[in-house]
Design a protein around this nucleic acid. Structure first.
Lengths: 224, 224
DNA sequence: CGTAATTGAGCGAGCGCTCTGTCTATGAAT
DNA sequence: ATTCATAGACAGAGCGCTCGCTCAATTACG
């Protein structure tokens, strides 16, 4: 499982960096600093509304230094994307997701962990989902591939592990995509819902998904 | 029902036009022409990637003429939004939606009509959902209000009409928003689904929603 | 003193929007 | 019938500004 993440990380660096002579660790740390520093301004002003000067200032770097570690503004959006997938997967692992053997319980647990994580990082997810289509063709291709492989693919795998799932292959494919989509519902369209009741909303969404998939929720799932 | 649309339309014109002396019919026709002419370029290049010059050229107007009928670039996005709601509602009415008395059948029919319409206009919906948050504060407020009143509000009303719906008030509120969200799933995240099988996907989504709401689908709903 | 790291002024391009000059349709005056 | 005054529709050059990005100049360091 962890090697999947490592490969993802490696691919990011390869894609973003043109100069192979740069120290890989330093570059990774700097790119991490860029993502973390740029997040606040990006969430506030959006990608197009934020200039390179804004980002450089927010990261405590000069424009020149910034361009040592990225090669275009689009690279920053790309980094945000891979960063998002990384920390999401990390959270699943920290949440003990991979220690659950029953596949239905795994799905329930993964949904809860994901929805809570996504809600906590709602600014990030709102940003990712509304800005990513503005990437240039090449970056977009890679980002969509990553998403299909790592996120949709994650749910695809979970569904495939459930024996006797009452869905056709085609339906499972739609379902995998739909589950990812519903898991970002609260950041994307939940703005006129009472934010005090997020916990209940997550419960409802999970029940909704399970009923939609014709699955019984595991006993005592709310306590998990 | 129709007066609701009329009021919506009136509000658009009032909001967009500052000069009250302009002929209302001419203005409406020109604004219609702007929306229709601008759509293709906007879908292709996105709102930020499309300049006023592009839009003017695509509408067969000069920049000067364009600015006779709008007062800022944001007005165009606003027009696109209201236009979308108008044609969506129009389609529902043409589809004989309001002639169905049974509330559960109404919901099933509305979902099918909506999803098919949204899929046919997927470029428009992808555009609307990914670009609207870039509106300035005032335009955004109006657009979100319109959406909550006309679209979410539409589903809210449908759910309220179903006697003995096994959902709490809070759950119904989440569900109304979620239904709108799921109805735009195919344009927003269905890009790696087989476009030959859209019909089946819509069927699956409707079944999914009904199961999620704990509702039985009306008999023979597929033929409807 | 030489080399590497770092900077931010400057470049060319493109933006949203304005506004003045041009065109055209109309109709009163001759 | 012809001229001319007037007003509204229209065009697009130009304004002021900001953008992403580069690279000559400067600083820091061994």
């Amino acid at each position: 499982m962890q090697e999947r993440l490592d490969k993802m990380q490696r691919r990011v660096s390869e894609h973003v960096l043109e100069s192979a002579s740069l120290d890989r660790d330093l570059a990774d740390r700097k790119q991490q600093a860029i993502v973390e520093g740029a997040s606040a301004v990006l969430f506030e002003k959006g990608f197009h509304g934020t200039s390179i000067r804004d980002i450089a200032a927010a990261c405590g770097m000069s424009m020149g230094q910034l361009y040592h570690y990225i090669s275009s503004k689009d690279d920053i959006l790309y980094l945000m994307h891979t960063h998002t997938q990384e920390i999401w997967y990390q959270r699943l692992m920290e949440g003990g997701f991979d220690q659950i053997s029953d596949p239905v319980e795994r799905l329930a647990h993964a949904l809860r962990l994901s929805m809570e994580f996504i809600y906590e990082n709602r600014d990030l997810y709102l940003f990712i989902f509304t800005e990513s289509k503005h990437l240039d063709r090449e970056h977009l291709r890679v980002v969509l591939e990553l998403d299909d492989k790592n996120v949709v693919g994650f749910y695809r795998g979970l569904l495939a592990d459930i024996p006797g799932l009452p869905l056709s292959a085609e339906e499972s494919e739609v379902a995998s995509n739909l589950i990812e989509f519903i898991s970002v519902f609260l950041p994307l369209r939940g703005w006129n819902l009472d934010s005090e009741k997020t916990r209940e909303h997550v419960d409802f969404l999970i029940e909704f998904v399970f009923r939609g998939l014709r699955l019984e929720l595991p006993l005592g799932w709310r306590a998990a």
